[in-house]
C-alpha cells in the first residue's frame, strides 16, 4: 500500500515538476519585468506557444511510441507553402487550399511511417531525410520567396475578439485531441505498448507496422496545422519558416516528462513544456536579454529539466 501512495506522489510530482518550474518562471518574471504579467502579454505568450505546442503534440505520439520525428519543422513549412501556393498561384478556393496543405503534412508523415515500419529505417534517419526533402520542396514550390496565404489560413492567425486569439484556441483544441487520442483510442494505447516494448506489443497481436504509419501520419498532420498557424499570423508562408522548430518540439515533449526511450509521456506534460519554452523566450525578451544569450539560457533549461527528471527517476 505504501507503494501506491508513493507512486501517486511521484506521479503528481512529475506532472507538477514541469508545472512547478513554469510557475516559478512566471512568478520570477512578474517580479523582474513589470510588463510581463499583463493580460495582453500573457495572451502573446499563448500565441507564441501555440505553434511549438501543436508541433510538440504531434511529436508526443512519436516519442511515446519510441520514435523521433525530426522533420516536423520542414513539414510545417511545406504544408503552409502548398496551402498558400494552391490559392495564390493555382487559384483554388481557400478551404480547398487549406485541405491540400493539411494533406501534404499527412502524406509526408505517411512516407516517414512507411520508411520506418516497412523500410525498417531508423526513425532518426528517415525523418532526417524528410527534414531535408520537405525543406527543399518548400523552396521549389515557392521559388524561394514568401507567398500570401488565403483568408481562411490568415484567420487562424487572427483574433476572434481582442481577448481571444485563434492560435490559442487551436492549441487548446489540439491539446484536447492529443489527450483523447493518447488515453482513449486504440492507436494511442498501442503507442504506449510499442514504445514500452515493441516486441511484446508485436507478440500480443498489435499490428506494429500499421500503427507506426498512423503515428507518423498524425505527427505530419499536426505539423501541417502548426505550419498553418505560423503562416496565418504573418498572412504569408515563408520558405524558411519554422527552421529548427523540430528541436523546440522535442524539447517541449521532454521537458514535459516524456522519455525518449518510449512508453512514457502525456499531453499535459507537453503543453506545460511548450509553455515553459514560450514563457522563457517572452520573459527574456522583456528583460532585454540579447537573443544570443537567450539561446544559451534555453539550452541550459532543457538540460536542467531532463537532468532533474533523471535524478528523480534514479532516487525511486
Amino acid at each position: 500500500m505504501t507503494t501506491v501512495a508513493s507512486r501517486k506522489n511521484v506521479k503528481v510530482l512529475s506532472d507538477n515538476g514541469a508545472l512547478a518550474g513554469l510557475l516559478v518562471l512566471v512568478v520570477a518574471l512578474s517580479l523582474l519585468a513589470p510588463s510581463f504579467l499583463t493580460t495582453q502579454n500573457l495572451l502573446n505568450v499563448g500565441v507564441q506557444a501555440a505553434v511549438v505546442a501543436v508541433l510538440a503534440f504531434g511529436s508526443t505520439f512519436v516519442i511515446v511510441s519510441g520514435g523521433i520525428d525530426l522533420s516536423v519543422g520542414s513539414v510545417a513549412a511545406l504544408s503552409a507553402m502548398v496551402g498558400a501556393w494552391s490559392s495564390a498561384e493555382a487559384g483554388l478556393p481557400g478551404p480547398v487550399a487549406l485541405l491540400l496543405g493539411l494533406g501534404t503534412g499527412v502524406v509526408a508523415g505517411l512516407v516517414n511511417g512507411a520508411l520506418v515500419s516497412y523500410g525498417k529505417l531508423p526513425a532518426f534517419i528517415a525523418t532526417l531525410a524528410m527534414l531535408s526533402v520537405a525543406r527543399g520542396l518548400t523552396l521549389v514550390v515557392s521559388q524561394g520567396s514568401p507567398t500570401t496565404t488565403p483568408d481562411v489560413v490568415s484567420f487562424l492567425g487572427s483574433n476572434l475578439t481582442p481577448y481571444l486569439p485563434v492560435p490559442l484556441l487551436v492549441m487548446l483544441v489540439f491539446f484536447g485531441i492529443t489527450g483523447f487520442v493518447l488515453s482513449r483510442t486504440y492507436s494511442g494505447r498501442a503507442m504506449y505498448a510499442i514504445g514500452g516494448n515493441e516486441e511484446a506489443a508485436r507478440l500480443s497481436g498489435i499490428d506494429v507496422r500499421r500503427q507506426k504509419l498512423v503515428i507518423y501520419a498524425l505527427s505530419g498532420l499536426f505539423a501541417a496545422v502548426a505550419g498553418m498557424l505560423l503562416a496565418g499570423r504573418l498572412s504569408s508562408a515563408g520558405p524558411q519558416a519554422a527552421v529548427g522548430y523540430e528541436l523546440d518540439a522535442i524539447a517541449a515533449v521532454v521537458i514535459g516528462g516524456a522519455s525518449l526511450s518510449g512508453g512514457v509521456g502525456r499531453a499535459t506534460g507537453t503543453l506545460v513544456g511548450a509553455l515553459v519554452l514560450a514563457v522563457l523566450r517572452n520573459g527574456l525578451n522583456q528583460l532585454q536579454v540579447s537573443p544570443f544569450w537567450q539561446q544559451v539560457v534555453i539550452g541550459a533549461v532543457i538540460a536542467l529539466a531532463v537532468l532533474l527528471d533523471t535524478l528523480r527517476r534514479r532516487t525511486r
Binding site: R189, Y192, A193, G195, G196, N197, E199, A200, A201, L203, S259, G262, G263, V264
Partner: peptide, 13 residues
C-alpha cells in the same frame, strides 16, 4: 521481460 511485458505500463494495460 524482453517479449512478454511492457515494463513501463501498468498491470491493467
Amino acid at each position: 521481460k524482453g517479449q512478454g511485458l511492457v515494463l513501463t505500463s501498468t498491470v491493467a494495460d
